[in-house]
């Protein structure tokens, strides 16, 4: 087994184990904190795939942004107020059927597809290629996404600022 294989399995185990903790633990704070390791493991797998920029964006957006927002939300409601927020399971049967069908179809597609594989070339960096693609070929989508995010930001600010009558 190659050194990189060991690293890959390490990241895979981190991702899967922490994701398992996220859904199974009863304590919602534990769920939120184990998401950190899930995101980290996914970022590690991105690095192994040669997508360095995406890996850093993964940590930046999910850990630096979303996870902290989530933790703030959970912490300000859990323990400080008397309401104890707990995760629970509901609708076990329909959920397991739906997940089973989804997982089964993904596995079948994966098995049946005739993958065309060739030895991978690890790119030195993806930053420059990504940047020129975003600004040249997909500039309209890029700008539209920017406007969408701006609208969401302004909407959030105006909802938060609304004063009580």
């Amino acid at each position: 087994m190659d050194f990189y294989d060991i690293i890959f399995y390490l990241f895979a185990v981190i991702t899967l184990a922490s994701a398992f903790v996220v859904v199974t633990t009863r304590n919602i704070i534990y769920s939120a904190f184990s998401l950190l390791f899930t995101f980290f493991g996914v970022a590690g797998i991105y690095v192994l795939l040669g997508a360095d920029f995406i890996a850093v964006v993964q940590i930046m957006v999910y850990v630096g942004g979303i996870l902290i927002l989530l933790l703030f939300g959970v912490m300000l409601t859990n323990k400080i107020t008397t309401v104890e927020i707990r995760t629970g399971t509901a609708n076990v049967l329909p959920a397991s059927i739906a997940v089973g069908i989804l997982a089964g179809s993904i596995v079948t597609v994966m098995m049946w597809t005739d993958w065309k594989s060739k030895p991978g070339e690890i790119p030195i960096t993806t930053t420059k290629a990504l940047g020129s693609l975003l600004i040249n070929d997909y500039v309209l989508i890029f700008e539209l996404l920017g406007i969408l995010l701006l609208i969401a930001l302004i909407g959030a600010a105006s909802i938060a600022r609304r004063e009580k009558e």
């Binding site: 904190f33 950190l36 980290f40 850093v56 964006v57 940590i59 930046m60 850990v63 630096g64 942004g65 996870l67 902290i68 933790l71 703030f72 912490m75």
Partner: peptide
């Protein structure tokens, strides 16, 4: 990006 992990661990 990695300073985000510092923030989470401070929390």
């Amino acid at each position: 990006a990695i300073s985000g992990i510092v923030v989470v661990s401070i929390l």
